[in-house]
């Protein structure tokens, strides 16, 4: 295996990234102030930080992404050995995909994909 080019590539990219970050850190004028980083409110001091909370629906989308990510992971070796694993291997993965399709239909019917 020839990993040294990858190692060299990673070292080079880390060097470039740290160089650019360090350049903007050292060359620019730094006058840190608490008012600069706080949220801007007109007329009164800010109560809270400016981070807004996410909707739970983003979380549902992330969960579904995990599930189908793993499905694709289990399908990778199948794509390579499709012609060797015979009919039994074919039907085993078809059963697996059918289970996940069942989950997908359930999720569609419950309306987890709709956006209110």
């Amino acid at each position: 295996m020839s990993y040294p080019p990858i190692a060299g590539f990673m070292v080079l990219s880390a060097f470039i990234a740290s160089f650019i970050l360090g350049l903007s850190f050292f060359v620019a004028k730094l006058k840190p102030d608490g008012e600069k980083v706080s949220a801007y409110e007109c007329g009164f001091d800010p109560f809270d930080d400016a981070r807004a909370r996410f909707d739970v629906r983003f979380y549902l989308v992330a969960i579904l992404f995990i599930i189908f990510d793993l499905e694709v992971t289990f399908c990778f070796p199948w794509a390579l050995t499709l012609f060797y694993s015979g009919l039994f291997g074919f039907y085993s993965i078809v059963f697996f995909l059918g289970l996940l399709t069942l989950g997908f239909v359930y999720e569609w019917q419950k309306g987890a994909l709709d956006w209110e």
Partner: peptide
């Protein structure tokens, strides 16, 4: 890996 993914999904829910 599958168990970890399912556990984190349901645990975080």
């Amino acid at each position: 890996l599958t168990v970890a993914a399912a556990e984190s999904a349901i645990g975080l829910a």
